[in-house]
Design a protein around this nucleic acid. Structure first.
Lengths: 356, 356
DNA sequence: CAATCGCATGTAAACGGTTACATTCGCAGT
DNA sequence: ACTGCGAATGTAACCGTTTACATGCGATTG
């Protein structure tokens, strides 16, 4: 195909200099009306589109921010990204969305690619906030803000949910459902899932000290949830006594529920399940999920806002935003009234907390 | 923060010229080993990352392709995009994903932005293949391939599902379920939804000529599906006779089913529902959806493949790829055996068809 | 020992914009 | 007619790479 037109071509065709064309296109004043019209006519006639790559090189501004998430198929991250997109686009930035598939090497490569593309800032749901990818970001001086995790270094900004509180919410919910044993399906090692685990364990340790409790780690997917519960069901580990299952996210919770109904175990009568995230589908699942909701879109928006602040105010110090989760009670776990009366744990809070 | 290092900085630090640095970084031969080592040492020490924007300007190659989809929250498009991402990344391209939200003006702006960013090609799920956005693509000479639609102009490549056949599949499925009236929830005007409608209507006209049939247009969302069916249920239009409902996509189908169960109407005993797309969640919905599956990931992969072919072979003529849909029978519509025996419509095909 | 060759390296011209600065133009004031 | 001045336009340097070409240099060769 033919090559792209350049500003020079337009200048020649309109019989003016490149500077004038540039001025017309950037709406600068001090261009005679007829000249402007002549240039615009040529531009329109030839459908000229100026090269942003040249412009970026010239101005050293790309008006682009990079976003790194872990899983593009996961509604949690998609909502984060959507929230972020909203606000960056509205400030005239373009968003470059990338996805690490939970692989640290990929994450590192993605960050490298973003830096090379000279994005002006990045939003990253880091797998590990001390990883090389973050070091690279620091050393290359590209402003960034962490999402869904945080750093001990208080020069770096972050936006995350209060996972410990979320874990407690889940724990208390199961407590109130009056179950006699607990199964914990925790996620891959990660700040936020570790906190969830702590919060959950602390809550049940406090409310139900002697209860039998079994934990699994690294479970993140529907299939894993299905699988583990199926194994337990096969040996009648969960259909004899009332059981509470904590799932590291809503996908896992759905897998769990799927397995339970496939084994003829009734939810929530025999087994109660609490998920995490409250993805859109949780409410529409075959049995609507009781789950801990995180304000996903808000998180994306706040993160983007924080980043944009940084871009204008490069040396403001970091702020760590922590958003309170909220328990959404649907059909997989309902408080049994007697026990609820005893425990008077707060069960529903939303609010923005700011540390540092 | 400090500015980015440039190749010049590295050259100075390593006491060589920029050309040498460039050669080292592009692995060109003809660099003495010790020089190479010296340069690499400096590069590593200062975490230098070359600017792709400068490189792109210099080489007039961005190694980037743009993708335009209609709705990023819709799993159908996400899968398309994922399929495409796979293959472009693996060829060393970066993918710029954008989303029009079904707005033609936005779509046009997005294409404009992609052209300005000098993407080397674009994959576009066009709202209307004759729209300005496509004209812009043509006139700027950027290779592109249509997804989920097609053009009468046979120089343009496209990858789409055989929507007419899909409509027929849905129609025949309802036919076999032995329903006595039909409700059609068609989508917004669009090549592929129009074809689905035609296929569906032709199928029931052929198999059940005298049946009462009611059509709605522009229904695309869960809420719309829920809403329409609720109105009908309120006036007992669907709980008296066995009814078949065609939904323009799986979201709509879920809304429909939700409304039905909320009104105590049993699915599929009283009302049968067929969706479209077979998004991942269809199988896990509160009542698993009978739906027409499209090979979404494959479509993305093929589209990307076609585009990459183009990039190497700019003036090959277009090819239109049409993929056969497949009926997935789950719980919202099941063939009643008597009638199934009479009609012997093909019910399950997968195959790639190539026209032109 | 000079001519030749090939490899390693440097020099400088692109690439397509932006923008500081220089120049020209049109016109009012004297 | 001349000066002065602001508005309109042009000129050229710069942004950070790549790459064609020039140069330098050590080893081979007649």
């Amino acid at each position: 195909m033919s090559r792209h037109l350049t500003m020079n071509d337009i200048a020649r065709l309109a019989d003016v200099s490149v500077a004038t064309v540039s001025r017309v296109l950037s709406n600068s004043p001090n261009v005679r009306d007829d000249t402007r019209a002549r240039v615009l006519a040529v531009v329109k006639e030839h459908q000229y589109e100026p090269s942003y790559v040249a412009r970026s090189l010239s101005t050293s501004k790309t008006r682009t921010v990079g976003v790194v998430i872990d899983d593009i198929a996961n509604p949690f991250f998609m909502e984060l990204a959507k929230g972020a997109e909203q606000v960056v686009r509205q400030q005239g930035y373009t968003m470059l969305l990338t996805c690490s598939n939970w692989d640290r090497d990929v994450e590192h490569d993605l960050v490298r690619a973003l830096v090379r593309n000279r994005v002006e800032g990045v939003l990253i749901a880091a797998i590990d906030p001390e990883a090389d990818s973050i070091r690279l970001l620091r050393s290359s001086g590209v402003p960034f803000v962490l999402m869904n995790c945080w750093s001990s270094d208080n020069t770096v900004s972050s936006v995350s949910g209060d996972s410990y509180a979320g874990g407690e919410l889940a724990g208390n919910c199961l407590l109130r459902a009056d179950v006699q044993q607990y199964i914990c399906l925790f996620g891959v090692p990660h700040q936020s899932s570790d906190e969830r685990a702590r919060g959950f364990l602390d809550a049940v340790a406090a409310g139900h000290p002697s209860a039998p409790l079994e934990t699994y780690y690294d479970v993140e997917t529907f299939d894993q949830g299905y699988e583990i519960v199926s194994r337990l069901a096969a040996v009648h580990r969960i259909d004899r006594v009332r059981t509470g299952i904590f799932a590291s996210n809503d996908f896992v919770a759905m897998g769990v529920v799927d397995s339970l109904v496939d084994h003829g175990i009734s939810v929530p009568e025999q087994v109660s399940v609490v998920g995490f995230d409250d993805i859109e589908f949780a409410a529409r699942y075959r049995v609507p999920l009781t789950t801990v909701a995180q304000p996903k879109t808000t998180m994306g928006e706040l993160a983007a806002g924080a980043l944009l602040d940084r871009l204008e105010q490069p040396n403001r110090d970091g702020r760590r935003l922590v958003l309170k989760p909220r328990l959404v009670v649907r059909d997989t776990c309902r408080p049994s009234t007697e026990r609820s009366a005893q425990l008077r744990a707060p069960i529903n809070t939303t609010e923005t907390h700011e540390h540092t």
